[in-house]
Structures are given as structure tokens and as C-alpha cells.
Simulated scan of single mutants.
Amino acid sequence: MIKSELLEDGIHILTLVDNRLDAANTPQFRETMTDQIKNGASRIILDMSAIQFLDSSGLGGLVSVLKRMSPIGDLVLVGLHPNVLKTFQLTKMDRKRSINPTC
């Protein structure tokens, strides 16, 4: 579900490999992200370019992870598919500074 790469400057690049983040895989996503944070990842770039569909469970999982990261570091979401970006716009999540849809 998530490929991980650690850069020399301590930035973790996590790439979602599924094309959906929904009720079926959000618990695993949340668990994996929590493990990354517990293991010291405080600067994360989450590449979502493979995600073409995001439901309310997936959005809730992302919000949960963003909240968990905010006091300890940075989580930047990149590569948002137009369908996913539309969900972020409808929920006003695109106004968060931790989202860069075009990278």
C-alpha cells in the first residue's frame, strides 16, 4: 500500500501505490502512517499521484494523520488527481498549507 524512501536530509517520501483510499484500506493506511510517525518520521511528503478515488473514510484518515503530524512535524500531500483535488476543494481541505496538489 505504501512505498517508503528516506532522503539524506531526513525527509521521508511515502508513495501510495493503490488507486483508491477508501473504507477498505484506510485502516491499514492509518496504521502504516502511525508506525512511520512513531519511528521518528517528522518530515513526510505523501505522494498521492496513484490515488484516483478518495471517499469520506480516506479523507478522515488523511485528516487524522495531518492532525497527528501538526505538533511534531510536517506532512505535505502532493500529486493530487483532479478527482481527489475536487474532494479537497469541496471540503475546503485545499486551503491547508500542507497540500500541494500539483507536485
Rank of each mutant, 00 (worst) to 15 (best):
I2L: 15
I2V: 14
K3P: 01
L6E: 12
D9S: 11
D9V: 05
G10P: 03
G10M: 09
I11T: 15
L16M: 15
L16F: 07
L16C: 14
L16N: 03
V17S: 09
N19H: 11
N19K: 12
R20F: 06
R20S: 11
D22K: 05
A23G: 13
A24W: 06
N25D: 09
T26P: 03
T26C: 11
P27W: 07
F29W: 01
F29R: 00
T32C: 04
M33N: 01
D35T: 13
I37K: 06
I37M: 07
N39W: 03
G40M: 10
G40L: 05
G40F: 09
G40Y: 06
S42H: 15
S42R: 15
D47I: 07
D47R: 04
M48W: 05
S49Y: 04
S49A: 14
S49W: 07
A50Y: 04
I51R: 02
Q52C: 08
F53L: 12
L54A: 06
D55W: 03
S56E: 08
S57T: 14
G60M: 08
G60V: 07
G61C: 07
L62V: 08
L62S: 02
V63N: 03
S64E: 11
V65E: 01
L66S: 14
L66C: 09
R68M: 13
M69I: 13
S70C: 05
S70M: 08
P71M: 08
I72E: 13
L75M: 15
L75C: 10
L77I: 02
V78G: 02
L80V: 13
L80C: 07
H81T: 08
N83Y: 07
N83M: 10
L85G: 06
L85V: 05
F88V: 04
F88K: 04
Q89W: 00
Q89Y: 02
K92P: 00
K92S: 15
M93N: 05
D94N: 15
K96I: 12
R97F: 06
R97C: 03
R97T: 14
S98P: 01
S98I: 02
S98A: 13
S98H: 12
C103K: 15
